[in-house]
Amino acid sequence: MAVEYSNPGLPTHDGFWRQFARHRLALLALALVVLLALLALFAPALEMLLGLDAGAADLFNRLAPPSADHWLGTDEAGRDVFLRLLYGGRVSLMVGIIAALLAALLGTMIGLIAGYFGGWPDGFLMRATDAVIALPLLPLLIVLAAVDPQKLGLPDSIAQSELFSLYRIILIISLVGWTTVARLVRAETLSLRRREFVIAARAQGLGSPAILCRHILPNVASPIVVATTLTIGNVILLESVLSFLALGIQPPTASWGNMLNNVQDYLWDAPMLAVWPGLMIFVTVIAFNFLGDGLQDALDPRARR
């Protein structure tokens, strides 16, 4: 009978919540993110409830001020700003979350392999990570966003889909965004694989995949969660930058980024049109940043006060 070594794992639920709740701004951020997500999720329901059509342009009711029908007024095509914001939020949040999750997944796999196996896989993967970090991000995104999908051999059904710009952004961002997670996971794995409980598990004859999943992964989860949360905010910001360059999500699909970009010309005439999407991006990104910060405080034992 081998000695049982305890697996430190994640902090207990109670400990985590107590710690997290002390970070008041993070708590507020969490509430905000949940609220935004719910609003975005129920946008179609709200649309029905209000009896409006978010996509319908009304030329005779452009740039209208807020009213009982249109809570935040109408935009340059006469569409309801409030509903557009909710639909834009759906897209922006979705892009942020999916891209961040994909990046985290990719980064975790690379980091685990590099850290656990060491040797040449580690050398190769870490050099690759260096290379990706060295890429001039913004110019490269511009090139990638302008590449012809058909020349890359994508079938027309995908390349010509209305949502292609959405897939493209998610893919591009996850392809360059995995490096932080990979480095974090590798560093943690590197130290974990020398720990007693891992050595013991290996002595018990557990295979590498099992050790990775059961013993290493739970212990590297904290930095992954933190990094992913922070990435979501960054992605939403990046989408707005790409929209500014007309390389983001394409209309008629609304995103906060392209809404913000489209109202540039109404800055003097209807400034509130620019204020709303800008504010939504700002508030959401800052909320995700605080959430990440709070999670870090609560999850990282070294950062305990």
Binding site: D58, A77, F164, Q250, P251, P252, N262
Partner: peptide, 22 residues
């Protein structure tokens, strides 16, 4: 982009489904 979204809405009213891809 603005004009095409307006056109899309107007064509929808006569039963023409117009997809926008720019």
């Amino acid at each position: 982009e603005l004009v095409e979204q307006v056109l899309q809405s107007q064509w929808k009213k006569i039963g023409v489904d117009v997809r926008i891809r720019n």
